[in-house]
Write a protein that binds this DNA or RNA. Structure first.
Length: 532
RNA sequence: GGCCCCUUCGUCUAGCGGCCUAGGAUGCCACCCUUUCAAGGUGGAGACACGGGUUCGAGUCCCGUAGGGGCUACCA
């Protein structure tokens, strides 16, 4: 017999939450559908974070796998906010979570923003539902009211054991009496005292748990809020979730959850306990609370989605990066589109082992994605970064600069030190210090000579295309005995003011002949003044 | 402490009993290319945690040990 709420509770709930949402013909509020084979039909998966702050990359990967599975099976992906711990709720969390999904392009079918037929999708707005089902569990002998005080509980914990089930067998009359006295209570689940519970995990297979090792977990707190244990099951049932995906830290409470499903006599969904991300050194779970990590180069390691955005990563690269942790596309392919991933993704193929956060690979992947990006996309991504840094960006100029940057950027932000000078106020250009201007194995005299000669050579050029410049300067180098690198490097430094830049002649072409010559003369004058 | 999960190159992974003298990627090193920085090309070093079984045959199955991770809250 399937659990259903008493008429009073059901009607009050219907009025509150289900008005017009469920077909009126639904016999009772539970109206769950029979779930079919795991991979047969459309899947409904969910990501159910607590709103405790910025979106963490670990949670994002968990969400990604749920999302991929839903998309693979043509189902729905649901976002549900689990804010049953009032103390831990952080305002603005939902916005940050949504921003993360939007940035990565993970579309949500049902959720607090999107709405949907099984809302509300925020647990604090569903309190009556949990309370009604908790009451149902008590009435049907699957749960009981526990009046133990926090002091009592602390004593029991201090004594080494957990809660001793002292109210498990309290008579209904006595419980009513205690309640009438105004004693606060929680509702606890009556976990079977003997036997084993076998949980089937999609990734790991069957897992056995001894029931006598389990506690009588709290389902409903004394403040009327449910715990995760109750709330997620009630919601997963009502929201018709077909596959529950969550991090491995939930594995120890798996048997508890299974027993609750059983107590309700609801057909349980399938479960996949996903591996988690460990710190880059492999020690400990990657956590948002722990200290910041830095890589070998001293660069701080991003762990919040916001940090990936700020660090100049492409969302497609981050998605690809996440897919490659604990799952792989196959065919020895490291780089693939999200559409390709959807075609092949299966929870069953997820590696059960936790993994160290392989952040070093992201730089490589990101540079690969930048190389493959179209000109338009590259410009579109680069523009706001330049503008944020205070440059005023001319679209046409950016269009000419971007291709030179394509193979040189690990991160979009690298555009700043590499090519920011293109977007500076040219009239304010000042030549570099002599230590940048003078190339290796050259002195000030030679540098001055090269600059002086280059001005003459380049001035005569009618065709200022890079090839023409290069031909002219290469023959000059040959004639004078300088290495190409010495001559070209001097020009680079004079014209860009930098040691590292895009290719010199392409750069000068974009600056234009007049501006390039002006800069060379400026450099020459500055050098002569410095050594005088 | 108890319970649960996990264990292939530094790292991410392929491998689902013979195709493995273990493949790919990243990182590292070398060389090539080269106007800087990159990119690209070629090559190199680099792993089945350990010990028992099962089997004609084990990285692949079982047991144990060790190591790692997690849970053990009126947090999720």
């Amino acid at each position: 017999m399937k659990a259903s709420l008493c008429a009073a509770a059901a009607s009050s709930f219907e009025r509150l939450f289900l008005d017009g949402a469920l077909p009126k013909s639904a016999k009772s509020i539970d109206g769950g559908t029979e779930l079919t084979d795991s991979n047969a039909g459309p899947a409904r998966t969910r990501y159910a974070p607590s709103p405790t702050g910025p979106q963490h990359i670990g949670g994002m990967r968990t969400a990604l796998f749920a999302w991929l599975f839903a998309r693979r099976h043509g189902g729905q992906f649901i976002l549900r906010i689990e804010d049953t711990d009032q103390k831990r709720s952080v305002p603005g969390s939902l916005e940050m979570i949504l921003q993360s999904f939007d940035w990565l392009g993970m579309d949500i079918d049902e959720g607090p923003r999107e709405g949907g037929p099984y809302g509300p999708y925020v647990q604090s707005e569903r309190l009556e539902l949990y309370q009604a089902w908790a009451a149902w569990l008590v009435e049907n002998g699957h749960a009981y009211k526990c009046f133990a005080s926090v002091e009592e509980l602390a004593e029991m914990r201090a004594a080494g054991a957990g809660y001793d089930r002292r109210y498990r067998d309290t008579s209904a009359a006595r419980a009513a009496n205690l309640e009438a006295q105004g004693l606060p209570y929680v509702i606890r689940f009556k976990m079977p005292l003997t036997g084993v519970t076998v949980g089937e995990d999609m990734i790991r297979g069957p897992i056995e748990f001894d029931n006598d090792k389990m506690q009588d977990a709290v389902l409903l707190k004394s403040d009327g809020y449910p715990t995760y244990h109750l709330a997620h099951i009630v919601d997963d049932y009502h929201m018709k979730i077909s596959h529950v995906t969550r991090a491995v830290e939930w594995l120890p409470s798996f048997p508890l959850h299974l027993q609750i499903w059983k107590a309700f006599a609801w057909e349980e969904p399938q479960f996949a306990h996903l591996p988690v991300l460990l710190n880059p050194n492999g020690k400990g779970k990657l956590s948002k609370r722990k200290q910041q990590f830095t890589d070998a180069a001293g660069k701080s390691v991003p762990v919040l989605v916001q940090e990936f955005i700020e660090a100049g990563y492409l969302p497609a690269a981050v998605m690809n990066f996440l897919c490659n942790i604990g799952w792989n596309y196959g065919d020895n392919e490291e780089i693939f589109s999200i559409a390709q991933a959807i075609e092949r993704f299966d929870l069953k193929d997820v590696n059960p082992a936790n993994s160290a956060y392989p952040i070093a690979k992201l730089d490589w992947l990101n540079s690969q994605y930048i190389q493959r990006a179209g000109d338009d996309e590259l410009c579109r991504r680069l523009k706001p970064i330049l503008e944020k840094a205070g440059y005023s960006v001319d679209g046409e100029r950016l269009k000419r600069v971007a291709p030179l940057l394509r193979v040189r950027l690990k991160s979009l932000n690298d555009v700043l030190p590499m090519a920011g000078f293109f977007f500076d106020d040219w009239t304010a250009f000042s030549p570099p210090a002599v230590d940048i201007l003078i190339q290796r194995k050259m002195d000030d005299q030679q540098t001055a000579a090269v600059l002086r000669d280059a001005i003459l050579v380049l001035e005569r050029l009618d065709d200022f295309a890079p090839e023409a410049q290069q031909a002219a300067m290469a023959s000059y180098a040959k004639a004078t005995g300088f290495k190409n690198g010495q001559v070209f490097g001097t020009l680079r430094a004079a014209v860009t003011g930098q040691r590292v830049s895009p290719p010199t002649f392409e750069t000068m072409e974009i600056l234009g002949k007049a501006e390039s010559l002006r800069r060379l003369k400026l450099a020459l004058a500055s050098l002569q003044q410095a050594v005088a």
